[in-house]
Amino acid sequence: KDKDLLKGLDQEQANEVIAVLQMHNIEANKIDSGKLGYSITVAEPDFTAAVYWIK
């Protein structure tokens, strides 16, 4: 199951987060929520590491 990592990002921010996570071998998903911006989700086992790397 995926957990929400970040919400309300613009496309550039979302792409930067995806890139950082991929560099650390964390699979992440970018979801277009329309006017609400983009959300990033990661698998539950990767959540703690993902939070660490996006600081």
Rank of each mutant, 00 (worst) to 15 (best):
A49D: 08
Q22G: 07
D32H: 10
E16Y: 15
W53S: 01
Y52K: 09
M23E: 09
S39M: 11
V51Y: 11
T48A: 14
V20Y: 15
K35F: 10
N29E: 06
G8T: 04
D4C: 15
A19T: 07
T41Y: 10
K30Q: 06
I18P: 00
L5T: 01
L5E: 01
K30G: 04
H24M: 05
F47K: 02
G8R: 04
M23C: 12
G8M: 05
H24F: 06
L5F: 06
K7V: 12
S33R: 15
V20K: 08
F47Y: 12
F47R: 02
Q13P: 02
K30L: 14
V42E: 01
K7E: 08
I26R: 00
K1P: 09
A28D: 02
A19G: 06
L6I: 11
L9N: 01
Q22K: 14
V51K: 09
M23Y: 10
D32M: 10
S39I: 13
Y38L: 04
T41F: 08
N15Q: 07
E44G: 09
G34S: 03
A43E: 05
Y52N: 09
V17M: 09
A43W: 06
E12L: 10
A14V: 04
I40T: 00
K1L: 09
L36F: 12
V51W: 13
N25W: 06
Q13K: 09
S39V: 13
L36N: 13
H24N: 05
Q22R: 14
A49H: 06
K7Y: 13
G34K: 04
A14Q: 01
V20P: 00
V42G: 01
I18D: 02
S39K: 14
E16H: 14
Q22T: 08
T48F: 13
I26K: 00
E16W: 15
L21M: 03
E12N: 10
Y52M: 12
M23G: 07
V17Q: 01
I31D: 03
A14L: 04
F47C: 06
D32S: 09
T41I: 08
E16C: 15
G34F: 05
A28V: 05
G34T: 03
A50M: 03
A50E: 03
A43L: 07
G37H: 06
G34I: 03
K7A: 09
H24Q: 06
I26L: 03
N29H: 12
N29L: 10
L36R: 08
M23Q: 09
I18E: 02
A50F: 03
N29T: 11
M23S: 11
D10Q: 05
L21W: 01
I18Y: 05
Y38P: 00
G8P: 01
A43T: 06
A49N: 10
K7T: 13
S39H: 06
T48C: 15
Q13T: 12
K55G: 11
D2M: 15
K30V: 14
V42M: 02
K30P: 03
P45Y: 14
D4W: 15
I26Y: 03
K7D: 07
K55R: 09
I18S: 01
T41R: 10
G8A: 05
L9C: 13
L5S: 01
V51D: 09
W53F: 07
L6D: 03
A19V: 07
G34W: 04
V42S: 02
Q22L: 13
D2K: 11
G8Y: 09
V17N: 01
Y52T: 05
K3C: 15
T48M: 13
A19K: 13
I54L: 12
A43D: 05
I31T: 05
Y52P: 01
H24S: 01
E44Q: 05
F47P: 00
Y38A: 01
Q13Y: 08
L6E: 02
G8I: 03
K1H: 10
L36A: 11
S39C: 11
E27R: 14
S33C: 15
I40K: 01
Q13I: 06
N15Y: 07
E44K: 05
G8D: 04
A14C: 06
I31M: 05
E12H: 11
T41H: 05
F47A: 02
L6K: 03
Q22C: 11
S33Y: 15
I18K: 03
I40E: 00
E44A: 12
K35W: 09
E27P: 13
P45V: 14
A28P: 03
I18R: 02
Y38Q: 01
A28N: 02
E12K: 12
D2P: 13
A49F: 06
K1A: 11
K55H: 12
D4A: 14
I54P: 03
T48S: 12
L5Q: 02
V42K: 00
A49K: 09
K35V: 12
K30D: 01
K3I: 13
A43S: 11
I54F: 04
A19I: 09
